[in-house]
Write a protein that binds this DNA or RNA. Structure first.
Lengths: 199, 199
DNA sequence: TTTTTTTTCGATAGCTCTATAGAATGCGCC
DNA sequence: GGCGCATTCTATAGAGCTATCGAAAAAAAA
């Protein structure tokens, strides 16, 4: 699928972001060198600065790339009128497949965001917490609809869902054989029904 | 509480491990400098090498310190004959309070273990997976006892439990006001009963 | 006090890393 | 071909970092 009118710069810029994501994911922000990133995309170290103003700027772009359509996807799910059980399955599927598709970038956001410059950090933090808030609102609606127990702490629940997604996301990055669909089903089942044997 | 016969060396060594844990936790392994670690314990950079052969050796010691009684605690819980619901609550409590007590070291183990030397890495990995296996065995016993649904994938479940614990552990480190007991209860409740409204 | 041992220090070699500057190369277009 | 622009290169300044060495200081032993 050839991009229409994709000037070389755009292509290379994207390649640079991806290379940076990959190297940051493997070595961590501080452990990664600009030389390594450049090599990963087949150019020399100094040429990288044609695309990034600084190493830190590269980190910012990688994180943004990782989060990009992440929140939007959740909002799309959240705005459907499916029963909650179906929604939560969709949430896990989206979360996990985001990890698979942009796995390095999302991992980098989770692991290295502490090293972002203050300014970018708050911007991204806001994006991240928008995600949590959306999830929280979704849970609250499910409570009113009677799909979710009334005594659930929605704030806690939203954090837990994100935590589970991220934990599996990490494992997915390292083990490409994991079946995302199956995993999402198990997560959703766990969350809705618990492990306990119904008396 | 004065340690009986605690020679200066032992004290300082422990201080060094803790300082390293703290600095690694804040800056990451590669982002941390030996100067910073030394300063954190009030000595000069070169003096640190009296206690650590190398920076990497410090990482190893921090990780070991973080995991130390972690597995043992789980085994203690696992060997009781409490009902599973009580056990799982104890597991979460132990997991979360370990994070609070040795928070930096455990966080370092989770975040930075990738940068361990191969040899130490496998040793620690084994410790870590002993934890998961123990949890898995516990779940299997609970299935036989009828406390847990028979159709649960115990391997998945064990990973999920660890993932949830670590996710909250991370948040605990950053927010010291979180109530661990309450959190553990919510986690256990979520796991056993799920969020779904029982028809 | 003097001697011995443990702990800390200052100085520095040797290395790697980021970022910059200016030259070279490719490439479309007249 | 030759001009202008975009892209990549080589070379390097400048800084920080780990680890080592031998001397100093502190503590313990005699």
């Amino acid at each position: 699928m050839p991009q229409t009118a994709a000037p070389r710069y755009e292509q290379q810029k994207l390649a640079a972001v991806r290379a940076a994501a990959s190297v940051f994911a493997e070595h961590g922000y501080h452990g990664a060198s600009t030389t390594l990133i450049a090599e990963a995309m087949g150019i020399k170290q100094a040429s990288l600065y044609y695309y990034f103003k600084s190493k830190q700027a590269a980190l910012v772009e990688v994180c943004l790339y990782g989060l990009e359509d992440y929140v939007e996807r959740l909002q799309a799910i959240s705005s459907t009128s499916q029963p909650f059980a179906a929604q939560i399955l969709a949430v896990f599927s989206a979360h996990l497949s985001a990890y698979r598709e942009r796995n390095e970038a999302l991992k980098v956001y989770n692991d290295e965001r502490l090293y972002l410059p203050e300014e970018a950090r708050t911007e991204l933090k806001e994006l991240g917490s928008r995600y949590r808030q959306e999830l929280e609102a979704m849970l609250e609606r499910a409570v009113t609809a009677g799909d979710v127990r009334a005594d659930i702490d929605c704030h806690f629940a939203a954090q837990a869902i994100i935590g589970i997604g991220n934990a599996w996301g990490d494992l997915i990055v390292r083990d490409p054989d994991l079946d995302i669909i199956l995993l999402a089903q198990k997560c959703a089942d766990m969350l809705m029904n618990g492990f306990g044997n119904r008396a």
